[in-house]
Every structure is written in C-alpha cells, then in structure tokens.
C-alpha cells in the first residue's frame, strides 16, 4: 500500500502513534504502532502542507522584520485606523447580531407561524451566498438610489461606501452564528424548568431573567465571538460595499491586500500577522466559551 514510503518520511506521525497506543488505555480503538494507519498519515500530511507550512512561512517572514520596525509598521496611523474600523465595526455588528440573533432564535424555536421553516432556512443564506455577491447586492440595495438606501438618503445618511456600509456587510456575514449556536440550546431547554420556577413563585420576568436566560449566555457569547471573528477577517463583501479609503472606511484585510498589490510584502506581512494573532486569540476565546457552555450540560 501507499503508506510504507510515507511512513519513513513522516517519523513524527509514527511517534505520535506509538504514544497513543501505549499511553491511553481508554482509547476506543488502540492504534498499533507497528502498522501506521493511513488516515493518520493523510490527516497530518495534508494539514502540514495546506496549513502549517504556509503559516510557518508567514511567521518566519514576519520574524525577519526587526522588532522595532515591526512595531513601527504595525502601529502606523493608517494601520491603526484600519484596526479601528475593522475591530470596532466588527464588534458593533456582532453585538447587534447578539441581540437580534437571540430574538430570531427565540422566535424560531418558541413560536409556530406560517413560513417559519422558510425563515429558518434563510438564516443560513450568508453561509451559502458568496461574499462577492453579498457585497455587490448590499452595495446596490443600500446605495443612495437603492431599495433600502433611498429610505435613509433624505435624512442625509449615507449607507453604502462609508463605515456604515462596512457595518452592514459585517452584520450580513456574521448574522447566522448566534442563531445557529443558540437554537439547539433553546430547543433542549426543558419547559419543566419554567414550571419549576413558577411553582416556586417566580414571575414571568423573574423566570426569564433568572432561569431561562443564564444558560443561554454562553451560547450567545460564543455566537457573538464567532460572528466577530468572521467579521474581522471579512474581505469580499466589504471591498464591494466600502469606498476603501484610508482613514475613512479601510479595513485591515483590505490594507493587507492593497500592500500586496504594491509589492509591499513587509507591510502586508506585519498587518497580516496582527490579524493572524487576533484570530488565534479569538479561537482560544471561542474554545473557552464553548467549554463554559458545556459545564451546565449533563
């Protein structure tokens, strides 16, 4: 089979296999170190080629930049402004979806109404619709002459091609996360705990605040963090709906792209590294939130 030569070229994988076989007696299936199963080889080789080596290439590139120089590029005014637009707008979008996503999940789980199934399916549209299409159509709908944009134009509010446009694109792409993380938790919540609270004398408001809401906080925050993480990295929809002008509505991923176009690899790498660190921190945060949420589950 294919695995023999790969086995030799991947001693690391073989080592980890041996350790699994020996150290974990509770393993549902103990992998024998003598025979390296090829799913392991494929998994580790694929992840190395596709993810780990490219990441290593970027990290080593960013380490070739002097720390002081790195700091200077990372904190240039144009970069700081881009972080400001990226992170603040993402946070606002994720927070708005934290509230609205909770409401939508509640409505979808608790109420029966005509069209509920269709609405439920439409929630995933931002996952299915290519971001370039989202950006294109949001820019059109929210422009001064667009279906929704013209409702705001008389009040002097410009939606598309401004920070507001960035916000709208981020709201769109981060919408499903809260709904989808909250829905299963809401569905599993027993009606009985509400009855228990009533039988102990709690009012509807007390029941909601003290009994229904607390177990929902971890999934809501997880959804907000996932949406925030997605919004921070978003590129496709924003580039089409924003004017991408520095110090106005330029986001950090667009700054990376523009620097690459100008062959400013150093500048691109530094800002890209900042973004990468941000996403890794967010990933840790999301993992912690998920663990917190699981604590109450049986």
């Amino acid at each position: 089979m294919l695995d023999k030569p790969q086995l030799e070229s991947l001693p690391l994988a073989a080592d980890s296999q041996a350790r699994v076989g020996v150290s974990d007696q509770y393993a549902p299936q103990i992998v024998r170190p003598s025979r390296l199963s090829w799913p392991w080889v494929v998994t580790i080789a694929y992840l190395s080629i596709m993810l780990l080596i490219p990441m290593a290439a970027m990290i080593t590139k960013s380490m070739t930049v002097e720390p002081a120089e790195f700091w200077r590029i990372a904190t240039e005014p144009v970069a700081l402004s881009a972080y400001d637009v990226t992170f603040v707008t993402s946070f606002l979008a994720a927070a708005v979806n934290g509230v609205m996503g909770t409401l939508v999940a509640w409505v979808l789980v608790r109420y029966e109404f005509p069209g509920r199934k269709i609405i439920d399916a439409v929630v995933d549209l931002p996952f299915a619709l290519p971001t370039a299409v989202a950006g294109l159509v949001l820019a059109t709908v929210y422009s001064q002459q667009g279906w929704i944009g013209q409702l705001f134009a008389p009040f002097g509010i410009q939606m598309a091609f401004s920070r507001m446009g960035v916000f709208i694109a981020m709201v769109f792409i981060s919408f499903p996360f809260v709904v989808r993380t909250l829905q299963p938790v809401l569905q599993e919540q027993e009606q009985e705990i509400e009855e228990a609270a009533w039988s102990l004398g709690a009012s509807p408001l007390q029941t909601f605040v003290r009994v229904i809401l607390p177990p929902l906080v971890p999934p809501i925050l997880t959804g907000v963090a996932l949406g925030f993480s997605r919004a921070v990295g978003e590129y496709g929809s924003v580039i089409l709906i924003a004017s991408n002008v520095p110090f106005n509505d330029l986001i950090a991923p667009v700054l990376v792209f523009q620097r690459l176009e100008q062959y400013n690899f150093e500048g691109a790498t530094v800002v890209g590294t900042v973004l990468l660190i941000a996403s890794l921190v967010l990933l840790l945060l999301i993992n912690a939130l998920q663990r917190w949420g699981r604590r109450y589950a049986n």
Binding site: E190, E192, I193, E195, A196, A197, W198, S199, G201, A202, S203, V211, P214, P215, Y296, A297, N298
Partner: peptide, 21 residues
Amino acid sequence: LDVRQRNIGFVFQHYALFKHL
C-alpha cells in the same frame, strides 16, 4: 389561582433543576 399563588411544592419527573445554579 395561578401556580405562583397556590404555595405548593412541585417535584418534576426529570427534576427540572436549574443547571446554572
């Protein structure tokens, strides 16, 4: 009277304990 005003104690089949408390 509402359940809240009857001053009864109710034990549920699946306990219905508040998991976050």
